[in-house]
């Protein structure tokens, strides 16, 4: 177990995630022909949110959000500590469930529809995430991230090109980027306003923001795992992938839920399952 990376993750992931969000907003603005906010704007926003009154429909909403944050830190923690990859996936799922529950607690029609859409999104990306775990296991013969990351073996992506592409596809859903920003988008311009986060203000919205920063760093870590044992290359590729996601976000209209679910399943079946089949037959 690598305690150092664990501490580094817990302490610096929000910083890195916030910076990424700031760079994201800046690049998005430039792509749209605007100047955009300062790079540190996400931090200013969150600080401002914490100075506001916590106005919620039900107090339990905030409790769920705290659980959302706690489980996300826990998930990222075990990932960066080099523990079991299966556990990472299941606790990530649990963390997201808390967000859905919090949205249902808001009892507003917007957040209720948002929560339903979030469940559909989970349904859309979960098969591919499971294929990701299976693929990594088949290529490295272990679930332990530390072993995967440190053992000298050929780079995992050489065995998993299909899973890599499929994972990129669902990463767009996870990062809440167009065309798959159904349940909530970065801009409140949607038929369901802000979707699952509509009913949150002040500190609880700030907590959601911080949780997303943790989540994004975790997701980028999962991308870089494809390049194990060369993790520096992996980190570089993960950042490039993030830039690609910003580009995709700016070049697509929002899809409907039907397209999101079915296309993700087709991608999971063809790229994910196909890759695993190939590994079983020829690996």
């Amino acid at each position: 177990m690598d305690t150092l990376t664990l501490i580094l993750y817990v302490a610096f992931a929000p910083l890195l995630g916030g910076l990424l969000a700031g760079v994201d907003r800046r690049i998005t603005a430039r792509m749209q022909g605007r100047f955009g906010p300062p790079i540190l704007q996400p931090f200013y926003d969150v600080v401002k949110l914490f100075n506001k009154e916590n106005l919620v429909v039900r107090r339990s909403q905030t409790v769920y959000i705290i659980f959302f944050l706690a489980f996300m830190v826990f998930t990222g923690g075990i990932f960066y500590a080099g523990e079991d990859l299966l556990l990472v996936i299941f606790s990530l799922m649990l963390a997201n469930t808390f967000l859905v529950l919090a949205a249902y607690k808001g009892s507003s029609p917007y957040s209720a529809i948002g929560a339903e859409r979030e469940l559909l999104q989970i349904m859309a990306y979960e098969p591919m995430v499971l294929f990701y775990v299976v693929g990594i296991y088949m290529a490295s013969k272990t679930f332990y991230i530390e072993t995967i990351a440190t053992t000298q073996h050929p780079m995992l992506i050489r065995f998993l090109p299909g899973i890599f592409l499929g994972f990129l596809y669902v990463l767009t859903i996870k990062l809440r980027k167009s065309p798959f920003d159904l349940s909530t988008s970065h801009h409140g311009h949607q038929e369901i306003v802000k979707g699952i986060t509509t009913e949150f203000t002040g500190p609880s919205l700030g907590l959601i923001e911080i949780t997303h920063w943790y989540e994004n760093v975790l997701l980028l870590g999962m991308v870089s795992l494809f390049f194990a044992p060369n993790l520096w290359l992996g980190a570089g590729v993960a950042l490039a992938i993030y830039l690609l996601e910003i580009f995709i976000d700016n070049a697509c209209a929002r899809a409907r839920w039907q397209f999101t679910v079915f296309s993700s399943w087709v991608v999971a079946a063809v790229l994910g399952f196909g890759n695993i089949l190939a590994l079983t037959l020829f690996g």
Binding site: R30, M31, Q32, G33, R34, N250, A251
Partner: peptide, 10 residues
């Protein structure tokens, strides 16, 4: 969008 990204903002 790439032209805007590398050009001057409007």
């Amino acid at each position: 969008i790439l032209r805007s990204l590398f050009g001057r903002p409007a």
